[in-house]
Design a protein around this nucleic acid. Sequence first.
DNA 1: GAAGTTTATGTTATGTTATCACGTCTCGGG
DNA 2: CCCGAGACGTGATAACATAACATAAACTTC
Lengths: 162, 162
Amino acid sequence: MDPNPIGFHKHDHSHCVADAVAEADRSCREAGLQLTPVRKRTLEILLEEHRALGAYDVLARLAEDGFGSQPPVAYRALDFLTKHGLAHKIERLNAFIACAHPGDIHTPAFLICTSCNAVAEAETDPSHSLLSQIAETTGFHISKAVLEAEGTCPNCITDAAK
Amino acid sequence: MDPNPIGFHKHDHSHCVADAVAEADRSCREAGLQLTPVRKRTLEILLEEHRALGAYDVLARLAEDGFGSQPPVAYRALDFLTKHGLAHKIERLNAFIACAHPGDIHTPAFLICTSCNAVAEAETDPSHSLLSQIAETTGFHISKAVLEAEGTCPNCITDAAK
DNA sequence: GAAGTTTATGTTATGTTATCACGTCTCGGG
DNA sequence: CCCGAGACGTGATAACATAACATAAACTTC
């Protein structure tokens, strides 16, 4: 159901999990944040799956690995990751996904394919961002934005045409 | 906690509920849709409160008015309203709000004030919409978009400055 | 106008997502 | 050595949402 979920492009991610974890490790140390075993493992799980995962899916995997089996275990780890830009919550799906561009300051936009369930994280151009325009004209101060689009990804459009 | 939630501007809405319901009534009749008593009452509740309301809040009000008291009663009515553009779901809040611009074809953006809990529905300019740009460049076909920003509304910014 | 179809509503039950409250442990500072 | 902060585990519960089934009204097809 989910052949190639990374931005809808195929790729070999045998190494990218390890790389991303190492990078997270480094940036946390730099920022004085504790990337503890549960948190690190949670990030690995999200990276390995490379798709949006519910908190209870993550929890089940953590429990398998010997961590606690109660919801707060997963929610706390996911909170940490999302708070520090290592993961994002997809509100539409009540699910979580590893950040595709950690380190960048960004307002991510997500493209959710309802056919294959892939979720791609798109970059947005902050300069003529829709939301900053709105903020300007209304005097509203934005602290966090959610941009999510649901539809059909290029691969599934092609498949449907066959 | 919520002095003036409508787009953050004060207004007298003694008549606007009735007007909006009448308008909904008319447009449903035109479209061959049944704005049944539960559905109409649900819309009224959302309009009266003029803020984002959880499904169970709506349900409680419906039950008071003699409608069914089980969750599907509220969810079905809310589904109808959202499906036909008379209300919107705020994903970030798991809550529902009456549409501020029914009839228009629009991709609404919501501004959620974390201080006073007001939610404003902003118009977006579809021509240089962020998401349609993304769609173009990626080949993704968008069927539904969610744009939600969390922050501080002009009123609360002013209040905080005091 | 009887039989079947669609649409809406109600109810019971259950599933899914998220948080609270409390106890323990560990680590670093005073 | 004691203390406070942060992290983690656990039990309990809250909040959000849907499945499955029964009933009733409106419509339509013969």
